[in-house]
Amino acid sequence: MPKMIFIERDGTRKEVEAPVGLSVLEIAHRNNIDIEGACEGSLACSTCHVIVADDWFETLEEASEDEEDMLDLAFGLTATSRLGCQIIITEEKDGLTVALPQETRNMLLD
Rank of each mutant, 00 (worst) to 15 (best):
P2Q: 01
E91Q: 11
A28Y: 04
S23E: 00
F6P: 08
G95F: 00
T78N: 08
R30D: 11
P19L: 05
A79N: 15
E103M: 12
H49Q: 09
R30G: 08
R9A: 10
K93P: 00
G11M: 10
I27A: 01
A63L: 07
L77N: 15
V98R: 04
L71M: 13
E36H: 09
L77M: 14
L108T: 07
L73A: 12
T12D: 11
E68I: 14
M70Y: 09
C39G: 07
D94C: 04
L83I: 04
R30Y: 08
A44G: 12
L25A: 08
E40Y: 06
L73G: 08
D110R: 11
G41V: 03
T47M: 01
E26G: 04
M107V: 14
Q102P: 07
A99S: 14
S23D: 01
R30E: 06
T90S: 10
L25P: 12
P101F: 08
E26L: 08
V20N: 04
M107F: 13
L71G: 03
D34S: 11
C48I: 05
C48S: 12
D72M: 13
I51E: 09
G21E: 10
T97K: 02
I35N: 00
D10T: 12
E67F: 06
S46C: 15
G37Y: 03
D69I: 11
E65D: 13
P2A: 05
P2T: 02
E40V: 08
I7V: 13
M1I: 07
H49W: 09
I88C: 07
F57H: 15
E40R: 09
I51Q: 09
R105N: 15
S23K: 00
I7Q: 15
A44I: 05
P19E: 01
G95I: 00
L100Y: 14
N32V: 01
G21I: 03
G37R: 03
W56Y: 01
D94K: 03
I35D: 00
E17F: 04
E36Y: 10
D110Y: 10
E26R: 05
R105D: 06
T90Q: 06
T78S: 14
T97E: 15
D34L: 09
G84W: 09
M1H: 07
D110V: 13
I88K: 03
I88R: 01
I35P: 03
G21S: 03
A63E: 12
S23F: 08
K3H: 14
H49E: 09
P19G: 02
P19R: 01
E58N: 13
R105Q: 10
K3P: 02
A38M: 10
A28N: 04
S46V: 12
M4P: 03
L83C: 07
S81T: 10
